[in-house]
Simulated assay, not measured.
Amino acid sequence: MISHSIWRTVTAMLLLAGSLAACSKNDDKQEVIDPGGNTVTVKTGVYSVVNLVADTNATSAGNAVELYYSLEENKVIPASLKQTSKWDIVFYGIYNSSVYPNNGAATGSPGFGGPGTARLYVVVDRKFDAQYYDTTNFKPKTLPIPRQLWNTAFDAVKTVPVTDGQMGVRDAGLDHFQNNFDGWGYYDFYGSLFPDDPKKAHVVYAMPRVIVVKTTKGHYAKVIIENIYKDNPAAPSRDNKPGYVTFRYAIQMDGSKNLDIK
């Protein structure tokens, strides 16, 4: 597990390349990824991105401004390059809560029509989910969700569990929110989980689910989103500021599907 003491807060211009600190479990040193547009390919390892500035003005009333990200280079990619293969995933939609792969065949994706070939797959283990989630009614039964479950879920994905053909080109979004798809987070649109607290309506709760990504360059990665609120609060409310994405990912750069990366 990566120590919180070596995480650094990301500061970035909205939709422009910002600076962030990335650390690998294989290396005690911090590596600052160049935000100036130069290509800096990462090594096989585990990287943490904390308080990545997305759309801090995002609300539940409409889609947030899109944020493009390269897992291969560990940095934000300018929106002007959305029709290129420079990025791997984009955070968009309500509170930047949907994650689309950069795939030119993905209808509805900002990358539609472009050269991207990225794909993704949401790993769902119903037995594991049952520790914190009502798998019949599709809503959390325990809040806040125990933090250690993110580490357990992340470490459990040791390889790509499906074929490339089984990976999708559509987005990984909010769990069963206006759709029938399993997602990475739960959106309590009406505040039904806390009916006596109006500050708990329109709150997104991250769930410990891993998104496996095949990047535009053909490498495999696993991503787990921990929060979309500033400073990663365990029990977010309307008092917390959205638009700050915290996630962790491991990327395998040797071309294999081995995601058992420490």
Rank of each mutant, 00 (worst) to 15 (best):
H202G: 01
R170K: 13
P144R: 05
T117L: 08
E31R: 05
F138N: 12
F181A: 10
Y190S: 15
T41W: 08
D171Q: 13
D188P: 08
S48D: 13
I145Y: 09
N240P: 07
T142G: 09
R248L: 14
V53F: 08
G111L: 07
P110C: 07
D182P: 03
D239Y: 14
Y68I: 05
G243Y: 04
S5E: 15
K158I: 14
T44F: 01
I89G: 02
V122D: 07
H202D: 13
K75L: 09
N103M: 06
K75A: 12
T39H: 07
M253I: 15
N232V: 09
I211T: 06
H4M: 09
G116C: 07
L15R: 12
A54E: 00
Y92Q: 05
D254P: 02
K29V: 12
A206V: 09
G114F: 03
E66W: 02
G191Q: 01
D34S: 10
A79L: 12
V162W: 10
E73K: 04
D182C: 01
V210C: 06
Q178R: 10
G185K: 00
L67Y: 03
V90E: 03
K141W: 10
T216P: 01
Y205E: 01
K139A: 15
T163N: 14
R238S: 15
D164Q: 13
M13W: 10
V223A: 03
K75P: 05
Y68K: 12
S237G: 12
T215Y: 08
A172V: 15
W184A: 05
Y92K: 10
R126E: 14
S237I: 04
A206W: 05
I224N: 00
Y95F: 09
N227L: 06
L193V: 09
N38Q: 13
N51H: 00
I145C: 04
N258M: 01
K139M: 14
V65I: 14
I145Q: 07
D125F: 11
S192W: 04
E73V: 08
R238G: 11
P161V: 11
V49D: 00
A130G: 11
P115H: 08
A105R: 04
D34F: 11
P161W: 07
V169N: 03
Y220M: 08
W7N: 05
L14D: 14
T163P: 11
V50G: 00
T44H: 07
A58V: 04
T159S: 15
V245P: 00
V10N: 11
Q30Y: 11
F194S: 02
I251L: 02
L15E: 15
G36V: 07
H219K: 14
K86Q: 12
W184P: 03
V49Q: 08
